[in-house]
Design a protein around this nucleic acid. Structure first.
Length: 655
DNA sequence: TCACGGAATATTTTT
DNA sequence: TATTCCGTGA
């Protein structure tokens, strides 16, 4: 019962919380009742605070299943709960934790019928959504064609933005895509068609998980009460990156008790493109009157010279809660800005410097190279391979997005949901002599059968497609004939798919290894639906290639990461490459103050990852064809920083 | 109806 | 830089 959880004497606790935390952190973990906002600067022990708070609540006797910890990735939640388990005991592992999306998923599975959904609804990832939009786009936009009608990718962005900001398609187009306003009607029509499509096929995209959850809570007071009272203590990490729907969900969830704690740093808000609004954090006290605010300003991560620089960076922001980080960590060297002749010389500089660091005894996995966009590391990856330096790449183009993985997943998805048109198309188009028209016909036959992929058997194929279709039929007949474990189904599909893989991709040995990895993951599942949901909702974050295998084992590898994927992490030494004006900030962001501001925060996030050493590098003389200019200036966020805070150097030309 | 080749074109970031 | 679009030949 809640009364138990507000003990005033710390004597009953086994863990000496007060000595393990600083005064502000301790205040944050003991203020368990009522709304609480923690403004936590970079490296100020945010994760530590959350972890200890979970442990203390559990130690105080709160039922673990009554605690909800919402984080940005499932991994973040897992790590915090593991850490809490180490601190206290295994009860902490029973705390409910995950992302807003995964929370939405689990609640909706339970209450699906109340929302007119089948409990077995499927989740569409971004690629699925775009594929569906593409089909609808062609149907609706069949009329007079002009070249600049938005692509599926742009349409998906517009739709998602409107949903996450809880506004209309019209508003989004006028505000953010003004050049498309002449296509307003068609865009709105496609959006309607997309919504209908999802409804008809029992499909939910990422945004729907939030929308349906919000509607469920809002429209069903009885259910809301039940859920709200089952989670007595709610904690939210990275609150600066939540959007309006998420804020509303929290509001609805905490109506009963108001025991909500959110942690965040407005200076680290970097997901506006996804509808996140850093003002959420400033509005929290208005949403929850009586909010207690605690600020964590002591930085435990970086040495003073690094903080000097990061403070200069963030001082350029127009709008922020003011806080100044300080550290007691002494020594450390001044961050360095390195000019390189071209991209390759930048890569060589980084490789060379890393070798130096290793010689000095720095572990490879304590070094990270960060960049604005996934492809910025291509050249460096080539050099790393040449030097046989092991690395793992996080962010950018991912494992599950690669064609061969998607192909295999599509086969599994139609087993789980025979009405999955997108996956059927994908499968059928893999077969020689089958194009869109034939695929359409086959799909109609399957749909008319109703009872699932047995409909495939009714297709009497003609012409060249015969052979391929026969193989496909055999595959499904085999899977259908007797119950199989998830991984056995996977093996059957892979066996069927291998000849196709070999024919279509000249680099098939590499891709074959990826498929083995996929099978290894499947072994952990005993339910196909759960496997597919996880692959959509929480796919492995690492990029393609054999690096993937090592996800669990903490191997000694260099980390390459997008800045977004580096959020919350830290390393001994950090390199920020492509710190070139026009790349970081990106060229398309410099026209809008808002966008530029987000780039600035992104640079701040990147720089605050470093504990001891921080290097910025940029290649001179890069031609940007999209803008038609030569880029040769360092990022405007650091260009004017004086030498005593940021040392300027040239990469030696013999690299 | 499919497959292929050339031209246009838009370019992060992620649940 | 790769994807996506569009026209042509089989």
């Amino acid at each position: 019962m809640p009364e138990q959880s507000t003990p005033s004497n710390s004597g009953q606790f086994r863990i000496p919380y007060e000595t393990r935390l600083n005064a502000s952190q301790y205040e944050a973990i003991t203020a368990t009742e009522g709304p609480l906002l923690v403004i936590a600067g970079a490296g100020s022990g945010k994760t530590r605070t959350l972890t200890y708070r979970v442990a203390r609540l559990v130690e105080a006797g709160v039922s673990p299943s009554g605690i909800l910890l919402l984080t940005f990735t499932r991994k973040a939640a897992q790590q915090m709960l593991e850490r809490a388990t180490e601190l206290l005991d295994s009860r902490c592992g029973k705390v409910a934790g995950g992302t807003f999306h995964s929370f939405g998923n689990s609640i909706l599975r339970k209450y699906a019928p109340h929302m007119g959904l089948a409990p077995g609804f499927a989740i569409m990832d971004r690629a699925d959504a775009e594929a569906a939009i593409s089909i609808l786009r062609k149907e609706i936009h069949a009329g007079p064609k002009h070249r600049s009608f938005p692509r599926k990718h742009t349409l998906a962005n517009i739709f998602s933005r409107a949903v996450n900001k809880m506004t209309t398609i019209e508003d989004v187009v006028y505000d953010d895509y003004a050049h498309l306003s002449s296509d307003m009607e068609a865009i709105a029509l496609i959006f309607q068609a997309y919504q209908n499509h999802k409804r008809e096929h029992q499909l939910l995209d990422f945004d729907d998980l939030l929308v349906y959850l919000q509607q469920l809570l809002k429209g069903h007071p009885d259910i809301r009460e039940r859920i709200a009272s089952s989670y007595r203590y709610i904690m939210v990490d990275e609150y600066q990156d939540t959007n309006k729907i998420q804020a509303e969900i929290l509001y609805l969830l905490t109506g009963v008790h108001q025991n909500i704690m959110v942690v965040g740093d407005d200076s680290q808000s970097i997901y506006a493109f996804r509808g996140a609004n850093f003002r959420n954090i400033m509005e929290f006290p208005k949403m929850f009157p009586g909010t207690r605010i605690i600020t964590l300003e002591e930085n435990y991560r970086s040495v003073q010279p690094i903080l000097n620089l990061t403070n200069v960076i963030i001082d350029q922001a127009m709008e922020k809660y003011s806080k100044t980080l300080f550290t007691r960590r002494e020594g450390g060297s001044t961050p360095v800005l390195v000019s390189a002749r071209d991209e390759n010389s930048q890569s060589l500089f980084v490789v060379h410097k890393i070798q130096e660091l290793i010689d000095q005894g720095v572990a490879l996995n304590q070094i990270a190279v960060l960049f604005r966009a996934g492809f910025h590391s291509f050249d460096l990856e080539i050099e790393l391979n040449r030097e046989q330096m092991p690395f793992i790449k996080v962010g950018g183009f991912r494992f599950v997005e690669s064609a061969h993985i998607k192909d295999v997943l599509a086969h599994l998805r139609v087993i789980a949901n025979p009405h999955d048109r997108i996956s059927w198309y994908r499968i059928l188009l893999l077969i020689n002599k089958i194009g869109p028209t034939t695929a359409q016909k086959v799909f109609e036959a399957i749909r008319n059968e109703g009872s699932g992929y047995t409909g495939l058997l009714t297709v009497n194929s003609t012409g060249g497609a015969l052979k391929g279709l026969k193989r496909l039929k055999e595959l499904f007949a085999q899977i259908d004939s007797f119950p199989m474990s998830v991984v056995k189904m996977g093996e059957a599909v892979v066996k069927h798919y291998l000849p196709i893989l070999k024919e279509r991709h000249d680099d098939h040995p590499k891709r074959e290894k990826d498929l083995e990895q996929l099978l290894a993951i499947m072994e952990r599942y005993d339910n196909l639906g759960n496997f597919l949901t996880d692959m959509a909702l929480e796919p492995p974050n690492t990029s393609v290639g054999d690096t993937f295998a090592a996800e669990s084992a903490a191997k000694d590898r260099l980390v390459l990461s997008t800045v977004h994927s580096a959020k919350g992490l830290e390393w001994h030494t950090v390199f920020i490459i492509w710190a070139l004006d026009g790349r970081f900030p990106s060229a398309q962001s410099i026209y809008k103050a808002e966008d530029l501001e987000e780039e600035l925060r992104l640079m701040y996030v990147a720089a605050t990852r470093a504990r001891e050493n921080l290097y910025f590098t940029y290649p001179g003389q890069v031609y940007d064809r999209s803008v038609g200019v030569m880029l040769n200036q360092p990022s405007r966020f650091i260009a004017m920083v004086p030498e005593d805070i940021l040392e300027h150097r040239w990469a030696e030309s013999n690299f």
